[in-house]
Amino acid sequence: MAMRRLLGLLLLAGGLALGAGAAQAHPHVWITATSELIYAPDGSITGVRHAWTFDDMFSTYALQGIETKTKGVYSREELAPLAQTNVESLKEFAFFTFAKADGKKEKFQEPVDYFLEYRDATLTLHFTLPLKTPVKPKQLVLDVFDPAFFIDFKLADKDPVRLVGAPAACQMKFQRPNDGTANAQKLGEQTFMSGDNSNYGAMFANKITVDCP
């Protein structure tokens, strides 16, 4: 019986250790985002338009090797191949955009109207994600985050979320992850100890909720 107890203990300890061990590292890329929810005239939501500004270091990295007519000036056309690469790569990560209409997961189509803009030594990626099928839910929840937390998303301080053409009765609530440190510390007890770290970055999610009665 002692053997069985030992076995049980070992399994438990192993589970815990694996839980902590497999957790992801820290972010390497920072994005300051603004997001717009786009509504059709009939009040249904057709898609999400993002503008993501990358941090200084990543912007420089991304611009490596890109030839321009004038040094240090990057036109939209010169950045077009890079924008193409960006949206193609982002597909693998579902564009870090997760929508739920009345609790049901919604899918997005391929991005449209994408381009990069270079200003103040940083790159901003603009793109629109149309929903597969427009929805008209009572409640829409939109999360923007990287589940692996390689990218740290922060919604802009000023006008982080806008509803474009939404019915007047719709109300938007926006919830940021708390201050990074406090939040990271809070996640420990729940996530690390339960061994479930598949969605570790959700702790850092920016949650947008729109209620339309």
Binding site: H26, P27, M57, G180, A184, K186, L187, G188, T191, F192
Partner: peptide, 23 residues
Amino acid sequence: EPQVGGIVGWLLSKQSEFYREMS
């Protein structure tokens, strides 16, 4: 928080801090 998680979280934020100062 004295729990494991609090420390892991602190560790993560410390790393980020150093990393962000590099640029």
